[in-house]
Design a protein around this nucleic acid. Structure first.
Lengths: 234, 234
DNA sequence: CAGTTGACGTTAGCCCGCTAACGACGGTTT
DNA sequence: AAACCGTCGTTAGCGGGCTAACGTCAACTG
């Protein structure tokens, strides 16, 4: 009854789950350990989708670049999580179409898709965990799509901040209240698919209204409840 | 070695796979059969995510409505497919946040989440198929997000048309060539998150360039190769 | 057959986000 | 100390999509 128990709590439980698959991997003899320095590409648009990665240290962003070179972040994969899982349903020789790029020094175990599948056959536990990984990411991606549907700047930004605060925010002291985030205006721009300049302008307005607070070289602080209220009455 | 074999071909194979889960369900004693007429809601934003549906006849769209009531289509679920799968990773008593609405007369088997999980425990086959369903939908949703990242009308529309043509298009005669789609400008507007009027304007331009062709009460015909070329050189 | 509905077509004016460019400031490197 | 870089701040002008409204045409409805 694993499926039942594990996710009874909240989304954080699920995030932990997505990390279990890598812990359950056999320790040796599977895959190759890779090292990347900051802004190394793990894969590029015309690489084949024939392998998965288990990020063991560092952080990776999956991003999509249009013809003009504008890059938009599709997902951020943290240490302990699976990367490149889309090859489970991709055609055999399909291409990535995206970049995966290390944001900091990163270590990842590279496993050929076919090897990983072999390993999964015998492990019901791992299969179930993988299912949670997909489900979690589907939910996240749908929320990203929700954000991108809005055309006004503050609708996009405020919703993005809310989502970031909920998923990757360290609750400041006692919850529920302010949440700290380490993210630059430039990164926000890439995630909300808007220009850096206009992120700064819009963030300024949110700051005036007390929904967020930040200064030079200080972490961004999101006032979760007020921001949620602001969005819902918009 | 099911995982290996089934998706070696192309994306269509995967779509078939997502339909298998419902075929493998025990025929009796599980869930309740529900009937819906056109534009009935299967669920609403404040319903609980405590059940899944197997669409047996008809078609369902999952859509998100903002505060102003603008509705955007997140996904379209065809007969034979699973609907409402997000409850696998949602907190136990979480809400849908979206609408699921029948676009035509629809019949669906409603199964409580807990019952379905019970059933999955004993069926490795079904578990693997479910994994494919998630993987396929994650891929589709990422492509939707890709589309929504573009801010110009013809970038969004042309990419949406390409995606629709690839996934749900009947190849016209012999492939590869024109593809027929049954979709109104209004529906395109909801999927690309733009206004109906501007869809009409933009479609007119695409028609002038020979990338699509349509008339009153004629199906929309997408010229796949030319459209793909147009996008990649944009 | 008149009335109704749904889908495509068109336009004027406004609003808003982007581009491009430059400035200020802190931290790090040499 | 000087040079450099990354981050935030600010603005003018422009392009483009939205709103709102109305027109046209075909098919369905009674």
């Amino acid at each position: 009854m694993i499926l039942n128990q594990l996710c009874a709590d909240d989304h954080r439980t699920c995030q932990t789950l997505t990390e279990m698959t890598s812990r359950h991997l056999p320790q040796e003899g599977l895959g190759r350990l890779r090292q990347y320095v900051k802004s190394d590409d793990i894969w590029r648009p015309d690489d084949q989708s024939d392998r998965v990665y288990f990020v063991q240290r560092g952080q990776v962003t999956v991003l999509y670049a249009d013809a003009q070179g504008h890059e938009t972040v599709l997902r951020t994969v943290e240490a302990g999580q699976l990367l490149g899982e889309l090859c489970f349903c991709a055609p055999e020789h399909s291409l990535r179409e995206t970049f995966a790029r290390a944001t900091v020094e990163t270590m990842a175990l590279e496993v050929k898709y076919s090897e990983f599948v072999n390993y999964l056959q015998g492990d019901l536990m791992a299969l179930q965990e993988l299912l949670f990984t997909f489900c979690t990411r589907l939910g996240q991606t749908e929320r990203r799509a929700e954000i991108l549907m809005y055309r006004s700047a503050d609708a996009r930004l405020s919703r993005l901040l809310l989502q970031l605060a909920e998923t990757r925010g360290h609750p400041h002291k006692a919850q529920p209240g302010p949440v700290k985030l380490h993210v630059s205006h430039d990164e926000l721009a890439q995630m909300a698919a808007m220009s850096r300049a206009h992120v700064t302008v819009t963030m300024g307005k949110l700051r005036e209204q007390g929904l967020v607070s930040y200064e030079r070289n200080r972490p961004l602080i999101v006032n979760l409840p007020q921001l949620a209220a602001y969005i819902s009455k918009s």
